[in-house]
Design a protein around this nucleic acid. Structure first.
Length: 340
DNA sequence: TCTGGGGTCCTAGGACCC
DNA sequence: TCTGGGGTCCTAGGACCC
């Protein structure tokens, strides 16, 4: 358990990583995402601040981004490269000697019993000098407050949220300002007459549970009250599943093409599984048709294993069972590992 | 403006069992 | 015959995150 939790969040990570190896792109609108193929049906992964100023942000459809910013630099996402840059950042954080929990490529929590401001300054300095990247640091008395604080620190600053200023800062904000509480849940809460963080914090967990579930209801109330973890998970990440999915440039109706595609996806999943060196207990298939209607189906493997043909056979059967009747825009295959 | 890919965890209903 | 009350497992879908 740590007295203080710091949340470290890299600024415009993918764009910043590209600028590291293409310094001439600094200051230009830069959009990273997809494979770079023209006309592909994908979205922006990261837009530089210059691009965001023109309304292009993470999640913007790539075709719209190209229309809005015809003169921007568009780069395909280079996952292995970002992973290696991310590893350098995480190693820099671990070099502080403090416990580190990695949340994603560009985010981590760091715990400390020492001076959190001094540590935040040191992290910003070390990350910049060792990787060339800028980051924002949120300081809190738990994980939730630290992560929430980062929102006020971006870009590149430091902000502190504790029990002392939690309600003064967050109380009047809408419930979906809380990390982990999104638009759908905010809408359901609004039906209960709960629209602000303070209102959610003061509501009875049982009332919220009746609408949002026995675990999630009380959990949302605890979020509003500023509750979070003070213990970090510093161990190696053990994945529960591996999946691959593809959105086709054009919707597919041909059954033979669909079967060939799902077999291809299954074998890619099998490669990822082999890399993990663990057995698969369950295989899932996903089909998204015109209109964004998504259906999934899954089944256990009779004898848990990692054979690509076995995974492909189940995936194909699941696809047959899903029997899409409308044109298919996406196919996916997922493998669930046996419990570690 | 037709809306990625890769994950995690929770919910609810039905099956099944005692 | 019109009927219980737990408990657990399985499955599809939902919500959310980066």
């Amino acid at each position: 358990m740590s007295r203080w939790i710091l949340h470290v969040d890299l600024d415009q990570f993918l764009a910043a990583a590209e600028i590291l190896r293409h310094p001439e792109l600094a200051g230009r609108p830069l959009v990273v995402g997809g494979t770079g193929a023209p006309g592909e049906r994908t979205v922006v992964a990261t837009a530089s601040y210059e691009a965001r100023a023109h309304g292009v942000t993470s999640g913007t459809p790539m075709r719209l981004a190209r229309r809005r910013l015809p003169d921007a630099v568009f780069l395909p996402a280079d996952k292995p490269y970002y992973e290696s840059v991310s590893d350098d950042v995480m190693d820099t954080l671990r070099a502080t000697g403090e416990p580190v929990e990695v949340i994603g490529w560009d985010e981590a929590w760091v715990g400390t019993d020492g001076d959190p401001r001094a540590l935040a300054e040191r992290i910003r300095h070390d990350v910049r000098s060792r990787t060339g990247l800028s980051c924002a640091v949120g300081i809190g008395d738990n994980t939730l407050k630290a992560k929430t604080a980062t929102g006020f620190a971006k870009p590149g600053g430091i902000h502190e949220l504790t029990a002392r200023n939690w309600f003064a800062t967050m109380g009047a904000r809408p419930t979906d300002a809380l990390p982990g509480l999104g638009a759908k849940t905010a809408a359901k809460l609004a039906e209960l007459g709960i629209t602000t963080v303070t209102e959610l914090a003061e509501s009875r967990p049982g009332v919220v549970a009746a609408r949002l579930g026995p675990r999630m209801g009380p959990y949302y109330v605890s979020l509003a009250r500023g509750m979070g973890r003070t213990e970090l998970e510093t161990g190696r990440y053990v994945p529960r599943s591996r999946s691959r999915e593809t959105t086709f440039a054009e919707d597919i109706t041909d059954q033979d093409v669909l079967r060939a595609e799902i077999v291809e996806l299954a074998h890619r999943v099998a490669e990822d599984v082999a890399f993990e060196d663990r057995d698969v207990a369950r295989v899932g298939a996903k089909v998204r048709t015109t209109g964004f209607h998504t259906r999934t189906r899954s089944a256990p493997i009779e004898l848990p294993g990692r054979d690509g043909h076995a995974i492909a056979a189940i995936a194909t059967t699941l696809l047959d069972e899903l029997a899409p009747t409308r044109p298919v825009r996406l196919l996916g295959v997922r493998a669930e590992f046996v419990e570690a």
